[in-house]
Amino acid sequence: MDAARVGVITFPGSLDDKDAARAVRLAGAEPVALWHGDHDLRGVDAVVLPGGFSYGDYLRAGAIARFAPLMAEVVDAAKGGLPVLGICNGFQVLCESHLLPGALLPNAGLHFVCRDQRLSVENAETAWTSEYREGQELVIPIKNVDGRYVADRETLTELADSGRIVARYLDLNPNGSLDDIAGICNEAGNVVGLMPHPEHAAESLTGPSTDGLGFFTSIVKRLVNA
């Protein structure tokens, strides 16, 4: 059987596209490089929007990347059920694209934060988290300056009540995110946004753990069984 094909989009200013592609390969899938300026998803089975500072993040994080040519295809495909994972800057782009509710603002402490972060998995049923169990604790690096998740109280209540908070920060909230939110998903669970970087915790040589690999093995298992 052919390996699942997982696309990784490169925007101008993306930093973690190579690491994301590597994590996809470690999980047993074939990474497919996608270019922001194309209108072609190359028939991939899932898409990762990587971390970085797309288009310099001028204006607001993710605000200009939202209008990248390829994002039109991503938004349509995501609404049709294509699994999409946005990591850090990718999460910001998904919020700006309105695929996910809320927005990500400068860290409450105003500093760039880079640390190994403890998280709890709150929803182990999304397309990207099925290899975890609910309540599982992970250690995954976080590195951002615009990581403070905000949404109005009504949206936060709806996210919590419908199980759409995917991960929360433990021990210390690194950026002032409301309700300690580290990641959320859309109603269908195919679109996930995550501020920490699971692709940096995919092998022991370079990461603090291999706890992040599960995001990638989750999607591979789902695609193989589809």
Binding site: L110, R148, V150, D152
Partner: peptide
């Protein structure tokens, strides 16, 4: 402008 209910740490620092 940020909506009034949203924390503005830059303004606070000033």
């Amino acid at each position: 402008m940020l909506k009034p209910e949203i924390l503005d740490p830059q303004g606070q620092a000033i």
